Amino acid sequence: FSITQFVRNLGLEHLMDIFEREQITLRVLVEMGHKELKEIGINAYGHREKLIKGVERLI
């Protein structure tokens, strides 16, 4: 299971460039909250919320 699959499953594949540029893996994403996601350029609250909720389902 990769970050690419995870992001695609959430319908947020347009954010993949950010994850690749910042070298974010699923392991790193698990540790990130709204503040960190915003810092790397994910400005939409809804997108950040989707990512965080998606990660919570993985754990």
Rank of each mutant, 00 (worst) to 15 (best):
N9V: 10
E49W: 07
G54H: 05
Q5C: 15
Q23L: 07
L58C: 08
L10P: 00
I59N: 10
G41I: 05
I52V: 05
S2F: 09
G54A: 13
E22S: 11
E20N: 11
E56G: 09
L51P: 01
G41L: 03
L58S: 04
N9A: 15
R48G: 04
E13I: 10
H14T: 10
L12A: 01
G11Y: 05
F6W: 06
I24T: 05
E49Q: 11
L10Y: 03
A44N: 15
T4R: 14
L58A: 06
M32C: 02
I40F: 04
M32A: 04
V7K: 00
N43R: 09
G33R: 07
L12C: 05
L51T: 00
I59F: 13
K53W: 09
E31Q: 15
E56I: 10
H34P: 03
Q23V: 07
E22V: 06
A44F: 11
T4D: 12
H47C: 13
E36T: 05
I42E: 02
F1H: 10
K38M: 14
T25C: 05
I52A: 00
F6I: 06
S2T: 15
V7W: 02
G41S: 03
T4A: 14
F6N: 00
R27M: 11
I24V: 10
K50C: 11
R48C: 10
H14Y: 13
F6K: 00
K50G: 05
A44P: 07
L10T: 02
T25P: 04
V28N: 12
F1R: 08
G11P: 01
A44C: 15
K38Q: 14
I42D: 03
V7H: 00
L58H: 07
E31R: 15
V7T: 07
Y45E: 12
M32G: 02
G33S: 07
V7I: 13
M16L: 12
D17T: 11
R57N: 13
L15A: 02
L12H: 00
G41H: 03
D17I: 13
L15T: 02
N43A: 11
L51V: 08
E39K: 11
I59A: 08
R8F: 10
R57I: 12
K53C: 10
T25Y: 04
H47G: 03
H14G: 08
E39C: 08
H14M: 14
K38T: 10
E20W: 07
L29G: 00
I52M: 09
K53P: 01
E22C: 11
V28M: 15
H14K: 09
F19S: 02
R57T: 10
I3K: 00
R21K: 11
K35Q: 10
L10M: 08
E49L: 12
E49Y: 08
Q23T: 07
T25W: 03
H47Y: 09
F1M: 15
I52S: 00
L15P: 00
E56Q: 14
R21L: 06
F19N: 00
E22P: 03
I18S: 02
R8G: 08
E39A: 14
M32F: 08
H34Q: 03
F19P: 01
E49P: 03
I59W: 09
F19T: 01
K50I: 13
M16S: 10
R27Y: 09
I3G: 01
E20S: 09
L37M: 08
G54T: 05
Q23S: 12
A44W: 12
R48Y: 05
R27K: 14
R8V: 13
G11Q: 07
Q23W: 07
I3Q: 01
R57Y: 09
L51F: 05
F6C: 04
L51E: 00
I59Q: 11
